[in-house]
Design a protein around this nucleic acid. Structure first.
Lengths: 148, 148
DNA sequence: CTGCGTGCAAAGTATTTGCAAACCG
DNA sequence: CGGTTTGCAAATACTTTGCACGCAG
């Protein structure tokens, strides 16, 4: 699990005060192989804090998402899901629809940078960001017959 | 603008009854170079129908999205936006954050199919879908100084 | 100290649902 | 005619906001 010191260092770098709640959110997310909803995070935090409000969870998740530490995961239910990837390289995610586990997809295979360059060359547009999420069923779930 | 006959044909193919509301939603979306919210669509429909409910608009948009006729566009405001691309080839979209216009990005440049194959080869997962959306500011908006 | 961070309560609002009436095929 | 489709009203539920107190630096 991510140690408190490292969480604090990241927060400092983001110019956010190192509060126990923020640290715990980061540690918790870093220990999760799956994406979580704000409510999921809240439930888990309740075991560490007696007083913790859902709005606080939303605020912390927003800050971390804005700072790029956390990635949003898109699901058809249009709730917001979060995933913290310790991998700092630019990359994307494979999301298992069955177990919610998230796996990294390496950048070399993605080719998005070239695509962005191509777009701006052809139409004069400036690419500022992109969303790339691969959905499916992971190998483990397939074996367990969890396929849809 | 997409003619009613073509809209009807598409609906028939989807095994949906050809109702005036559905036809008009398709025509309207096909004529839009930008993505629209359910509410946007509703407002536009009001000029064609006196009795038209917002839930109906949502239902129609859901049906068409599920059938793959309409693409969802993701924005930070977490509302749902829709865009109808007449281009039947597999492709993706460049979304201008300033004018909301959507431009096609051709498939050859994307390489996502290869990526999906690579993922399943390496981890045994099955890829069922993916989201790829390129965000930025289009050439026209850049010239107009609309850049953020 | 001093301003950012948080709890709590309450609001906001996009989206969904239930049901009866209208309509397509 | 019979099962879809739609209008309307109401509900859902996620997320946000306001404000006062508490805590990090």
């Amino acid at each position: 699990m991510m140690d408190r010191h490292r969480a604090g260092a990241i927060l400092k770098e983001l110019q956010l005060k190192t509060t126990p709640k923020r640290v715990e959110v980061m540690r918790l997310l870093a220990a999760e192989p799956s994406f979580l909803s704000a409510d999921d995070v809240w439930q888990r935090l309740k075991s560490s804090f007696t007083h913790i409000g859902l709005p606080t969870v939303y605020r912390i998740l927003d800050e971390l998402t804005g700072a790029g530490v956390i990635t949003r995961i898109f699901l058809p239910d249009r709730k917001q899901y979060y995933f913290l990837c310790t991998n700092q390289e630019h990359h994307h995610h494979f999301v298992c629809e069955s177990c919610r586990r998230v796996e990294d997809v390496e950048q070399e295979q993605c080719g998005l940078d070239g695509l962005a360059r191509e777009i701006s060359r052809r139409s004069g547009a400036r690419v500022t960001s992109h969303i790339l999420q691969i959905n499916g069923v992971c190998g483990t779930c397939l074996k367990e017959g969890a396929a849809v």
